[in-house]
Design a protein around this nucleic acid. Structure first.
Length: 559
RNA sequence: GCCGAAAUAGCUCAGUAGGUAGAGCAACUGUUUCGUAAUCAGUAGGUCAUAGGUUUGAUUCCUACUUUCGGCUCCA
């Protein structure tokens, strides 16, 4: 207020990681150089040590005091005729429910971190306000610790790891949101693909390949044209046809189901695909592998009888839990995404169907005793869903897995099965993605592991370093050949460099096992290896080493 | 898409109040043959993102555009 006399204050809530304040500065915007200036002024105010005093006002009084501030007026007008509280410190007063600390003296250890525009009430149609973010702590040490933690998070950012370990790249000529997977990243992805396909095959899934492009008619039939068009790339016209890149695979899978007659005995039918999809993401939203415009979904559509919904849904939830435990993932949240009953535009109107579906999902979650929270208005247009959310290194909340119930698409595509009584019945579809997309899952994995991948996923699993090429290279090559033939991803570093130099390189690349071959190993017909991040060396016979690594791989051990 | 910021060697960055640029690492050559996180020395490497404009002269100032980053909105 001292620095910007015209400032109008909107809200300044406390958030998980500190606080922010939204301010209307007329046409002024906050620039990078302004933060230290504001910070200095805040320090001054804090030093001043004014008390923060609570005033209680009636609605009328409040309207009068803030009569020049349209933001406050709106806020006050929305309140009931109760007592309205204000807090004042020196010459500054703002509306607030409270409570507050007693004096600004208690607010010495803070730092303003970032600033940005933010839409008034979060709606892109409204005016953009200036938002300032910051953190505040009781003492200097806690503040420093927090800032260190932010620095650490930057090191875990998958975009940094992705570059350092040559997982993926991007290029201006390819375009934003279109990452290119490099050989190392492709090894990881191939392992993930094989892993999840194997899991699904064991659970009775059948996998298909379908094209990434289709006529607009397909999406008009499915309803996506009306509900999803803003996320799709524009139409391609050729000959007399209108084609689009697909944003999802469900319509294709509906048609595959429809290709045959199905008996009630055949259900559930589970059609899976690692399907490439294309979605228009706003340019400000794309982020490394985490948020892309061309992605590969670990998708499947389960066609079930109404009486099979709960059982099949529970199986999907169990698969999610099973997979997460394989990746040693512990921090995630289940979100039950429901419709907003008032939003008749987005959601098809059949209250009974919605209520029934939502109840079924709830029941399964309760039976499995899983903690979850409900989110109104987050459902897909065709049905409620369960999302699994995680937080990235830099604090983005993203959805990984999803499992969605759908009564609508079977209707739209007129899907049927022949029931016991020889009449046609409507199946229900469950859409689900366990790894979500391979792109996002890989991004998350890199951040979780800080790039130290479990052996089964590591692009290079074993690195062999001969102490002296003249004497040890030949034996090293024998070892390499043996390991390669056993199916391990193994390399040999025969550069004319010191052992220490090559060991450092091996560790920097986060290779799980580094084998050293010198006189001792050659004579004893053994190998010695060092595990990533561990100081000591272990000697053993090569057959034992192979058994050990195989064990670690098949059990997907983290270390 | 919106608000802000950034773009210099393969990577991380420095620099020029406007006179066409430097370091470390990587690469290459030589040196060292050395048992667990960097042997030493030299060489090479840049249309300073792109396109215009101002200027005697632009990597530096201005405009446009592209990409990236921090948020907002949106989502797997």
């Amino acid at each position: 207020k001292h620095l910007y006399p015209n400032a109008k204050f909107w809200v300044g809530p406390v958030i998980e990681e500190g606080f922010y304040y939204d301010i209307d500065l007329d046409d002024k915007v906050i620039k990078e150089d302004d933060l230290p200036i504001i910070e200095k002024e805040m320090k001054k105010i804090s030093k001043d040590g004014k008390n923060i005093i609570r005033h209680e006002l009636t609605k009328e009084e409040a309207l009068n005091i803030f009569k020049d501030d349209e933001y406050k007026l709106e806020l006050i007008n929305k309140m009931d005729d109760c007592i309205i509280s204000c807090y004042a410190q020196g010459d500054f007063t703002d509306l607030c429910r409270g409570p507050h600390v007693e004096t600004v003296k208690e607010l010495k250890y803070f730092k303003l971190l970032k600033f940005s525009g933010a839409y008034y009430k979060g709606d892109a149609k409204n005016k953009m306000l200036q938002r300032i973010y910051g953190v505040c702590f009781e003492n200097e040490e806690d503040l420093k610790q927090h800032l260190d933690m932010l620095e650490d998070a930057k090191q875990r950012d998958h975009r940094k790891i992705g570059k350092d370990l040559e997982i993926y790249m991007t290029h201006e000529l390819v375009g934003p949101g279109f990452p290119l997977w490099l050989p190392n990243g492709s090894v990881i992805r191939r392992q993930l693909e094989n892993y999840i396909l194997d899991k699904e095959i064991k659970l009775g899934y059948q996998h298909v390949y379908t094209p990434c492009i289709a006529t607009t008619e397909l999406y008009k039939t499915s309803g996506h044209w009306d509900h999803y068009q803003e996320n799709m790339f524009p139409i391609m016209k050729i000959d007399e046809e209108e084609l689009v890149l697909r944003p999802m695979n469900c319509p294709h899978h509906m048609l595959i189901y429809k290709n045959q007659l199905h008996s009630y005995r055949d259900l559930p039918i589970r059609i899976g695909e690692l399907g490439a999809d294309f979605r228009y993401e706003s340019s400000g939203a794309v982020c490394g592998l985490e948020r892309v415009r061309a992605m590969c979904q670990n998708d499947a559509h389960l066609f079930v009888r109404p009486d099979q919904i709960e059982d099949e849904f529970a199986k999907v939830v169990k698969l999610i839990l099973d997979v997460y435990s394989d990746f040693n993932m512990k921090k995630y949240k289940f979100r039950l995404s429901l419709r907003d009953k008032n939003d008749t535009l987005k959601y098809f109107s059949d209250d009974e169907m919605w209520d029934k579906a939502e109840e079924k999902l709830r029941k399964v979650l309760n039976d499995l005793k899983l903690p979850y929270y409900e989110a109104i208005g987050e459902a897909a247009f065709y049905g409620p869903k369960l999302d699994v959310e995680v937080k990235t290194a830099i604090g983005h909340e993203i959805t990984l897995s999803t499992c969605q119930l759908d009564f609508l698409l079977p209707e739209k595509f007129d899907l049927t099965y022949i029931d016991k009584d020889a009449t046609k019945k409507r199946p229900v579809v469950i859409h689900r993605a366990i790894l979500g997309t391979l792109d996002r899952f890989t991004a998350f994995l890199l951040e979780e592991t800080k790039g130290i991948l479990p052996v089964w996923l590591a692009p290079i699993q074993i690195n062999i370093i001969p102490v002296n090429n003249e004497y040890h290279l030949e034996y090293s090559r024998e070892i390499k050949k043996l390991l390669f033939e056993k199916g391990f991803r193994v390399e040999i570093d025969a550069r004319e460099e010191k052992l220490g130099y090559r060991m450092r390189d091996s560790q920097t690349k986060k290779i799980p096992y580094t084998i050293i071959i010198g006189d001792k190993e050659k004579e004893a017909k053994q190998i010695s290896y060092r595990h990533f991040g561990v100081q000591d060396t272990v000697n053993m016979d090569i057959v034992n080493f192979i058994d050990m690594v195989n064990y670690v791989i098949t059990n997907k051990e983290i270390k």
